[in-house]
Amino acid sequence: MEKNKKKRIICFFPTSKRYYGMGGAERRIPYIFSNLDNTKFDVTILFQVYDGQSEKILKDIKKYINSNTKIVFIKGYLKILIYLIKQKFDWVCYTDCIIRSTVVIIGAILSGSYRLMMSVTTTNSKLIFKSRIEKMLFKVNVLLSNQIDCLYPSSINILKKAFPQKKISLTPCTLSNMQECIPSTKKRNYIVFAGRLVDGKGIELFVDAIFAIKEVIRKNEYLCVICGDGPLKSIIEAKVQNYNITDIVKVKGYTNVRKILSEAKIFCSLQNVNNYPSQSLLEAIACGCYCIATNVGDTENIIDPSFGELIDADKKSLANALLTAISFENDKWEDISKKASKYAISNFDLKNAVNHFEELFQK
């Protein structure tokens, strides 16, 4: 390769048949790659799509990329395979979604591309799988990759021990478009849950805890806002109805969560494996929220006592933490907001991730 020739990078994301909006990885990774030095790198983001999805994804992804980044939509994995073989990218990047990434890896091998697996799934990075087949396929994908870039600090040693011959690096913690996360000077009595409404995110725990302290919430005039979409949405809506708490709980669906977070006082991040580095949690910190998070995985690395609390993943612990936060005096909220926002600026800087990947791709 010519010394001064740009490196051509492509990053692959699969989609499900029903589009629920951009997840954390789909926002964070394109944002980082889009900010790579465009005199040295040409970046393409590739989405495997189903009918009717391209326009929706394009509308969402435009918020996280610049004009130098190319977006490609392809239906069908055979077409993706052919595309990769023809294009011959220098680096092909993909997440650890096991089966759906295998075709991409094969295409990268056949085209002579370097292969980077980005370990972004909490369970996979800890080698926790639903079946032996998943475990086997993950191992195959790792062995066929040139390097693994892991999102979770606590998983690095696990992966290094399991795959001692592989290059394994740690992705710096980054928040996309942090400049848009501006705390409001007038915080409202909002308690927010934001995330994909799927198992493992803690949405049912959130609703159960709200129900347990519903009278305190009503007395103090708080509103609980659920932002996000997913397979559990209809179940959660029914639960809110059955609990008779529709007056204090609103299910917003996929919405502009940053506007809500900038005005909110309290945010809950309740995943059962790891809240680090949930983009919604990082957004809440940057927006000056008091953050209540389950004490799992690497969550302790991003929750400081000056603006948050770590809890056990049960209804009583969450309810007690919410009661404590609701009881804060008015003058404390301004201090919490300033400390949380300052922490985000100091710890979630884009430059760290950009420098990391530029160095990686130059090797």
Rank of each mutant, 00 (worst) to 15 (best):
residue 338 K to A: 15
residue 94 Y to I: 07
residue 250 K to G: 04
residue 215 E to K: 12
residue 115 R to P: 01
residue 217 I to D: 03
residue 315 K to P: 01
residue 165 Q to E: 12
residue 125 S to G: 04
residue 141 N to P: 08
residue 317 S to Q: 06
residue 116 L to R: 05
residue 306 S to W: 01
residue 47 F to Q: 04
residue 45 I to K: 01
residue 336 I to K: 01
residue 301 N to F: 12
residue 338 K to E: 14
residue 118 M to P: 02
residue 50 Y to H: 13
residue 21 G to K: 02
residue 218 R to S: 12
residue 205 L to S: 07
residue 338 K to I: 15
residue 269 S to F: 04
residue 50 Y to G: 08
residue 277 P to M: 07
residue 181 C to E: 07
residue 8 R to G: 00
residue 239 K to R: 13
residue 108 A to E: 00
residue 362 Q to S: 15
residue 88 K to V: 00
residue 273 V to Q: 14
residue 288 G to Q: 09
residue 152 Y to H: 11
residue 88 K to W: 00
residue 53 Q to Y: 05
residue 134 E to F: 12
residue 156 I to T: 08
residue 15 T to L: 04
residue 302 I to G: 00
residue 45 I to Y: 00
residue 323 L to T: 09
residue 173 C to H: 04
residue 257 V to A: 09
residue 130 K to F: 11
residue 158 I to H: 06
residue 277 P to G: 12
residue 361 F to G: 03
residue 37 D to H: 08
residue 48 Q to D: 13
residue 23 G to Y: 05
residue 221 E to C: 12
residue 209 A to F: 07
residue 180 E to L: 15
residue 232 L to V: 00
residue 326 I to L: 08
residue 3 K to C: 09
residue 264 A to F: 02
residue 108 A to M: 01
residue 127 L to A: 04
residue 158 I to Y: 03
residue 315 K to N: 10
residue 62 K to T: 08
residue 359 E to Q: 14
residue 144 L to C: 11
residue 256 N to I: 06
residue 48 Q to M: 11
residue 178 M to L: 12
residue 88 K to Y: 00
residue 101 S to M: 04
residue 342 K to N: 12
residue 324 T to D: 13
residue 158 I to W: 03
residue 56 K to I: 13
residue 231 P to N: 06
residue 127 L to P: 04
residue 256 N to T: 07
residue 43 V to S: 00
residue 102 T to P: 00
residue 234 S to G: 02
residue 53 Q to R: 03
residue 34 S to G: 14
residue 214 K to L: 04
residue 239 K to Q: 13
residue 254 Y to F: 15
residue 42 D to Q: 12
residue 21 G to Q: 10
residue 209 A to T: 11
residue 35 N to C: 06
residue 191 I to N: 05
residue 267 F to E: 04
residue 139 K to D: 13
residue 115 R to H: 02
residue 220 N to V: 08
residue 354 V to N: 06
residue 352 N to R: 15
residue 281 L to C: 12
residue 344 A to E: 08
residue 201 K to N: 08
residue 224 C to N: 09
residue 75 K to H: 11
residue 305 P to W: 05
residue 344 A to N: 06
residue 137 L to E: 04
residue 297 G to C: 10
residue 33 F to Y: 14
residue 111 S to Q: 02
residue 70 K to A: 07
residue 256 N to W: 02
residue 357 F to P: 03
residue 157 N to D: 15
residue 199 D to L: 12
residue 360 L to H: 10
residue 266 I to M: 03
residue 329 E to F: 10
residue 212 A to C: 08
residue 197 L to G: 01
residue 283 E to P: 08
residue 184 S to I: 04
residue 9 I to N: 04
residue 228 G to D: 07
residue 118 M to L: 15
residue 13 F to W: 02
residue 85 I to Y: 00
residue 65 I to G: 08
residue 325 A to H: 02
residue 22 M to T: 09
residue 274 N to R: 01
residue 314 D to R: 09
residue 144 L to F: 15
residue 150 C to W: 03
residue 279 Q to L: 12
residue 208 D to T: 03
residue 143 L to P: 01
residue 104 V to G: 01
residue 182 I to F: 08
residue 237 E to S: 10
residue 248 I to N: 09
residue 157 N to F: 11
residue 199 D to A: 14
residue 44 T to N: 10
residue 113 S to N: 05
residue 65 I to M: 05
residue 210 I to R: 07
